[in-house]
């Protein structure tokens, strides 16, 4: 039997039932999984973005901390350097002073020795001059002078020499 072009028959019920079946199938196999997946993906992306923002913040903080400690390290290094320079300068100046002192000491000692030598030489010279002058006096006078008178003469001439020296 042939159906018509525009008819209403029992196939209406079938079509309604079919539509209901399609609804159930689509809801179970397409709508729920797909929309859950999309929601999950959105949440994952949001989470990733949030974690990324957080990590960026923390990285920034870390960077600042490192920079600070870097600066203080540099400061410390500079201070150590300053101290070292100062210390070395002090050592050098101390060394210089000591050297100078020692040198002066040596010079003093040398001067004293020179004085002593000078005294000694003068003394010897004095004795020589006294002896020679007496002999000369002897010769000039050609008189025998007694010892006492000799001694008086010598002492007199020693005093003269002492004044001169």
């Amino acid at each position: 039997m042939e159906g018509g072009v525009i008819t209403i028959d029992y196939s209406l019920l079938w079509q309604a039932f079919n539509m209901f079946i399609i609804y159930l199938l689509i809801r179970r196999y397409l709508y729920k999984p797909l929309s859950n997946f999309i929601k999950g993906r959105q949440e994952t992306i949001e989470n990733n973005l949030n974690t990324a923002a957080q990590e960026k913040e923390e990285a920034e903080k870390l960077r600042q901390k490192y920079e600070q400690s870097l600066m203080s390290a540099k400061q410390e290094a500079r201070e150590i350097l300053n101290n070292a320079t100062k210390q070395s300068e002090e050592i050098i100046s101390e060394g210089k002073r000591e050297a100078k002192e020692q040198g002066e000491q040596i010079i003093e000692k040398a001067k004293k020795e020179l004085e002593l030598e000078k005294e000694k030489v003068f003394k010897e010279l004095k004795d020589e001059i006294a002896f020679i002058s007496v002999r000369i006096a002897e010769r000039i006078i050609e008189t025998k002078i007694d010892a006492a008178a000799q001694r008086q003469l010598v002492d007199r001439y020693l005093k003269e020499v002492k004044k001169v020296s």
Partner: peptide, 22 residues
């Protein structure tokens, strides 16, 4: 143009070509 009919109940169509296509 005519809808093919496959199963009828008392002469009125029950399962037609449209149902099968659906």
């Amino acid at each position: 143009i005519i809808i093919p009919v496959y199963v009828t109940i008392n002469g009125t169509p029950f399962i037609t070509g449209s149902v099968v296509v659906t």
